[in-house]
Simulated scan of single mutants.
Amino acid sequence: MTTAVREAPHHNTVTCVKHYGCKRIECVERVRAYQKAWRHNRATQPPFVDAEPVRKHLELLADAGIGPRRVSTLTGLAVETIAGFTRPYNCGGGRRFGRKRKVRPVVAAKILALDPDTITPGVTDATGSRRRIQALNAAGWTKPALAQRLPAGSRPLHTLHQQTHLYARTADAIADLYDALKDQRPEEHGVHPTSAHRARLRAQRNNWPTIRYWADLMDVIDDLHFEPQYGVTRRQIVAQDAHWLMAEGGLDRFTAAERLGVHKSYLDHAFREFPEYALETAA
Rank of each mutant, 00 (worst) to 15 (best):
R6L: 13
H11F: 15
T15S: 14
H19V: 01
G21W: 03
I25D: 08
Y34D: 14
Q35M: 10
K36S: 11
A37M: 15
W38N: 06
W38M: 12
R42V: 04
Q45C: 08
Q45I: 06
Q45P: 04
P47G: 04
E52Q: 13
V54Q: 03
H57T: 00
L60H: 09
L61A: 05
A64I: 02
R69Y: 02
V71Y: 00
L77G: 01
P88R: 00
N90V: 02
G94T: 15
R95E: 07
R96P: 04
R96C: 08
F97P: 05
K102H: 13
A108V: 06
A108E: 03
A113K: 14
L114Y: 01
T124P: 08
T124S: 10
R131L: 02
I133D: 09
I133C: 10
A135Q: 06
L136M: 07
N137M: 15
A138R: 14
A139H: 10
G140K: 05
K143M: 14
P144R: 06
A145D: 09
R155Q: 08
L157A: 03
T159L: 12
T159W: 06
L160T: 09
L160Q: 08
H161Q: 12
Q162Y: 09
T164P: 01
T164M: 08
H165S: 14
H165Q: 14
Y167G: 15
A168T: 11
D176F: 01
L181C: 12
D183M: 00
R185V: 06
R185L: 15
P186D: 01
E187G: 14
P193Q: 00
H197P: 02
H197N: 11
A199M: 04
R200A: 10
R202H: 13
A203T: 05
T210L: 06
I211L: 11
R212D: 11
R212G: 10
W214I: 01
W214L: 00
A215R: 15
L217K: 15
D219N: 13
D223K: 02
D223Q: 02
Q229A: 09
G231V: 01
R234A: 12
Q236F: 00
I237F: 00
A239K: 12
M246E: 07
A247Q: 04
E248Q: 14
G249I: 07
G249T: 06
G250W: 06
L251K: 11
L251Q: 09
T255P: 00
T255E: 08
T255V: 05
A257T: 14
R259S: 13
V262W: 01
D268Y: 09
H269G: 07
E273T: 15
Y277L: 11
T281L: 07
